[in-house]
Design a protein around this nucleic acid. Structure first.
Lengths: 101, 101
DNA sequence: ACAACTGATAACAAATTAGTTATCATAAAC
DNA sequence: GTTTATGATAACTAATTTGTTATCAGTTGT
């Protein structure tokens, strides 16, 4: 019988449901899109206002923010621009090996 | 009669052909994808090798590197991972007002 | 109660991307 | 010269995203 999961986090950490590679991608998405949402709210923009400013329609923004679509980079760039942000390629910082006591 | 252009740069700076917004997007693409290409070559990977490592097919990588497609973010992330890079949202730094002498 | 605004979503068409397979011209290695 | 490897590309299918329009339930303010 399948394990019962109650939270998204539990679901994400269930290896039988989500492979490690998949989880890494999902976690990355959550972090990246989370930043987008925070930036929009920090500016006090509604999705409709951001749609006006970016040229990307409100339903598309809603789909992106709810992780229902994986946007194309130029779409993401257009949405980020009125928020004062851009996309950058940066090195993957190694997770510092936790020193055990 | 249409101006003759000889270089990509001339084309890009011709306001009658490329609007400022469009130019900004293109310049961004060139910079971003340029970094991807540099990273791949720095690792000494061929497109075929990177395809193996990333799970993205070689023709797709070629289309991305030649700016013939605007990849989806998860595609770009998958390609960047074996190169040791990731996508990040960063603030747009203001172009420092050039002090005139 | 009502109006106004919010994010989410349905439904469909149009556009775009990636997968797939094969091939090409070029350059390098032998 | 003949392999061998390279990036680019053609042609087609399948999958996905976005545009478009309309609407929904929930919240906030009056």
């Amino acid at each position: 019988m399948a394990k019962k999961v109650n939270t998204f986090r539990e679901y994400l950490n269930d290896e039988e449901r989500v492979s490690p590679e998949e989880r890494a991608l999902i976690e990355f998405d959550v972090e990246l899109i989370g930043k987008l949402i925070e930036a929009r709210e920090a500016k006090g923009f509604s999705q409709r206002e951001l749609a006006e400013l970016s040229g990307i329609k409100q339903p598309a923004i809603a789909r992106i923010e709810s992780l229902k679509s994986k946007p194309q980079i130029d779409t993401l760039v257009k949405v980020l621009r009125p928020l004062g942000y851009k996309l950058t390629i940066t090195p993957i910082q190694e997770r510092p090996a936790r020193s055990h006591k």
